[in-house]
Structure formats: C-alpha cells, structure tokens
C-alpha cells in the first residue's frame, strides 16, 4: 500500500480535461481484448504441438521458402514504395498542375479498394495476354504468376502509406531554408541532399515500416497474381490458409507465430533506427 500510493498519485495528476482513469482503462481493456488476447491464443495454440513439432513445421523447406518469399519481397516492395512514395508526395505538395487533386485522390485508392479487386485487376494487366504482360512477353519476361507479380502487388498496396506519411512534412518545409542554402552557394542537388531530405528521414522510415507491415500481411491482392507455386511464389499467409483447409490448425498457428515474431523484430529494428534518426535529424 505504502509503495502503491505515490505511484497512484503520480498517475492522478490534476488536469483540465477529466477522464484519465476511464480513457486509460478503456484503452488497456481494448488493447487486451482486441490485440493481445488473440495473439496469446495463437501462441498457446502453436505451443500445443510441443517443441519438436514446432521445429518440424518451422524448418520445413516449403514453409521456409514461403517465409523467404513473404518477407524478402515485402522488404523490396516497401523500399521501392518508399522511394516512389517520396517522389509522388513531393510532386503533389510542391507543384500545382491541372488534375493534381484527382491524382491526390487516386493515391488513396489502394486503401479503399478491396484487395481481391486489386489482385484481379493487376493479374489481368500483367498476365501474358494482358496489356502490360503482353508487351514484355515477346522478350521472354513474365510478370504475373511469378515473384515479380507479388512485388508489383505489394508496391501497389504499400504506396499510399509511403505517400501519406511524408506528405505533411514536405508541406511543412520552409522555403527560406532552400533559399538560405542557395545564397550560401550550394548547388540544387546539395540543397536537396543536405537540407531538404534529412529532416524527412524519420517520416520516410515510418512510411517504410507501415508499407512493410502491410505487405507482409497482404493476402487478397497477392494470391491472384502470384501463381502460388510452392517454393517459388507461395506466400506465407497463403500457406497458413492451405494448412487451415487441411485442418492442420497447429501447423497454421506455428507459421503464424513465426510471422508474428519476425514482424515484431522487424518493426522493433525500424523503430530503433527511427529513434536514432529522430535524434540525429529531427531537431525541430
């Protein structure tokens, strides 16, 4: 009691807006019910088959291949989405051109579109008989039904995250900073690299993390374009669905747990980099 009292009084600071207790309690309850409970259930489920069973599923070559496809292509797609997202955000905030508002609205489409619709549309475009697939087919290139197709789908769904996170920061850039750089004799490219981009790095990383997280979890749009060949273009979420349809609930839970662990680690690393970059570049 004596040790709890100061902690309580520290939490119960007088405030203009009432309701800290009820909002904090509700947040915790919600987090527990919606996020932590299912995750705990997942881990419990996975642990039910024992350590040996876990290892057997985890080291299965098909599972490993699927995880590699999922995380590898997600990483690549998030990188590309970040770069293009930065460009799109730059163009949308810095320039005024006819149709700017329409393009601005189009950026959000991947958010709103049911992912299956996006998948079907992309598959139709990039299939060997589709508009774009047909163009590259004569060169012996295949996009749909290969890992390249997965990559395109993941860039598509990751782009809005990258755009929307950096956009407000680009809009905030002070023109005088560029002018100061120019009067000091710096070339345009030096101004871009030394003055304009560094303050954007934390936001670019946030966009990257969101795009990456979304890409790892993406299912709907990918399965239509991936071709889903085991060992080649089969993503881990699809493997989970397959295990489920075979009533191998424990196997599905193991793959899910591994995905959870890797995702968690990846986000942790990104957050650490972000914290560092904020210290390094974020002195606002």
């Amino acid at each position: 009691m004596s040790s709890a009292a100061p902690v309580l009084s520290r939490l119960k600071r007088p405030s203009v807006i009432p309701g800290f207790g009820i909002t904090f309690g509700f947040s915790l309850f919600y987090l527990g019910l919606i996020v932590l409970l299912p995750l705990a259930a997942l881990i419990v489920r996975a642990s039910r088959i024992g350590w040996d069973g876990f290892l057997a599923v985890a080291t299965d070559s098909r599972v490993l291949a699927a995880l590699k496809v999922s995380f590898g292509i997600s990483l690549l797609a998030a990188l590309v989405a970040s770069v293009f997202g930065l460009l799109v955000a730059w163009v949308l905030t810095r320039y005024d051109f006819p149709g700017r508002r329409i393009i601005d609205a189009v950026v959000d489409l991947p958010f709103a579109l049911p992912t299956a619709v996006a998948g079907i549309a992309l598959a139709a475009l990039y299939a060997p008989n589709g508009w774009i697939g047909g163009l590259v087919e004569p060169f012996g290139l295949k996009i749909a039904y290969t890992p390249a197709g997965i990559f395109i789908a993941l860039v598509f769904i990751g782009l809005p995250f990258a755009v929307r996170t950096v956009e407000p920061l680009i809009a905030e850039i002070d023109r005088e900073q560029e002018e100061a750089s120019a009067t000091l004799g710096a070339s345009r490219s030096r101004t871009l690299w030394k003055v304009l981009l560094p303050p954007l790095i934390p936001a670019i990383l946030t966009g990257f993390a969101l795009a990456f997280a979304r890409a790892v979890g993406e299912y709907g749009s990918v399965i239509f374009i991936a071709g889903n060949l085991p060992y080649v273009s089969e993503i881990a979420p699809l493997l989970i669905v397959i295990k489920l349809s075979e009533f191998d609930y424990a196997g599905a839970a193991v793959i899910a747990t591994i995905m959870l662990a890797i995702s968690f680690l990846a986000l942790l690393v990104i957050n650490l980099i972000q914290a560092w970059s904020r210290r390094r570049f974020g002195h606002v």
Binding site: E179, G185, A186
Partner: peptide
C-alpha cells in the same frame, strides 16, 4: 543566386534545424 556570393539573413533565421551550430556556419 548560388554564384552571387551574397550573405543573406532571413527574418525567421532559416537555420538548418537538423544541423548543429558548427555545421550550420560551415555549410557555405
């Protein structure tokens, strides 16, 4: 402007916020 060799001081300073004082001064 890059070639005019002028020193320009802005009303709102326009210092580079992500650089320390030494890097700001050494920028040019």
């Amino acid at each position: 402007v890059q070639k005019r060799q002028v020193g320009f001081v802005f009303q709102h300073y326009a210092l580079f916020r992500h650089m320390n004082v030494a890097d700001n001064i050494a920028y040019g």
